[in-house]
């Protein structure tokens, strides 16, 4: 004789499983919005050659300064180049500069900050140098460095990184100094953990949250700085289709042909807005203490 257990009725309603994406959007609308906008720009940058573009540097003097039309969506510039293609390819320059500066200045700034926070006798020297660099307004510092070298994307990245690094170093040093006093770090020291391991295992993981937020803002400001440098003729060489360069070329004609300046300006603003939204969202999500303050 076998006993079968009676089938239990479903008392509880089935748990509605919300998609993870939807949860993310509901909890962090700013992150979602920033990421979506940035995603579009990244898509444009990667797939620029397949978005109905032509060679962004191809000259066509016969088709100069055509207004936006079916063939030339954003019109053509003084040299007959297709503004639409130039703007699409320009996304690459802005994103590369933004991301590269964020990575480079985060890496160098973290290194300097950790050294400064850990090596007492070096601290005051390093921090005075950082104070000195920080008292030169960042755009001016980048301009001064660019005046020394030839204009190239690589040099622009280096110049802006130098200008942004002191801020990261400051931030990381502050975090390191406060973490050093934490009981768990003292426990690690007491149990004989070596300094490199303490830094790697106990200090660095705790810098990730503030560093991510800071790096996002640096990315946004680097994009603006790159555009400014190119706009005033101290940035990427004129042959590179960057948004700043397109605007610089449209400058002479902007009163009669405003669209040459208009389109790169819109794309630049939207991209920076996307990164800033991402930064604000990440700040609220990762660093509630800071979020309350700002």
């Amino acid at each position: 004789m076998s006993v079968t257990s009676p089938a239990l009725p479903d008392v509880l309603p089935p748990i509605r499983r919300r998609g993870r994406l939807r949860t993310l959007i509901r909890r962090n609308p700013t992150i979602a919005m920033g990421a979506a906008l940035l995603g579009v720009v990244v898509f444009i940058a990667i797939f620029a050659p397949w978005l109905g573009t032509v060679d962004p540097t191809a000259l066509a003097p016969a088709k100069r300064i055509r207004p936006p039309s079916e063939i030339y969506w954003f019109g053509t510039d003084m040299l007959g180049r297709d503004v639409y293609s130039r703007v699409m390819f320009g996304a690459r320059v802005s994103l590369i500069v933004g991301f590269a500066v964020a990575l480079l200045s985060s890496a160098i700034g973290t290194f300097i900050g950790v050294v400064s926070g850990y090596v007492r006798w070096l601290d005051s020297v390093i921090m005075r140098v950082m104070d000195g660099l920080m008292s030169i307004p960042p755009i001016l510092l980048a301009i001064a460095l660019m005046a020394l070298t030839r204009g190239s994307v690589q040099n622009v990245i280096i110049a802006i990184s130098v200008a942004e690094t002191p801020r990261v170093a400051r931030l990381i040093r502050g975090v390191v100094l406060s973490l050093r006093e934490q009981p768990y770090v003292e426990a690690a020291i007491a149990s004989g953990t070596r300094v490199p391991k303490i830094i790697w295992r106990h200090i660095l993981p705790n810098t990730i949250a503030p560093l991510t937020v800071q790096a996002t803002y640096i990315c946004a400001s680097a994009m603006i700085t790159e555009a400014i440098l190119s706009f005033i003729g101290a940035g990427t060489p004129p042959t590179v289709p960057s948004w700043g360069n397109i605007m610089a070329e449209g400058r002479a004609l902007w009163q009669v042909k405003p669209y040459i300046v208009f389109f790169p300006a819109v794309f630049l603003s939207v991209t920076v807005l996307a990164v800033n939204l991402l930064g604000d969202g990440l700040r609220d999500a990762l660093d509630p203490r800071l979020a309350k303050r700002l």
């Binding site: 605007m247 405003p258 807005l273 800033n276």
Partner: peptide, 17 residues
Amino acid sequence: VFGFSVPVFVVGYLLAY
């Protein structure tokens, strides 16, 4: 957020236009 994101020369051209 817009103030932070729209570069100064973009605002400048827009206003002048």
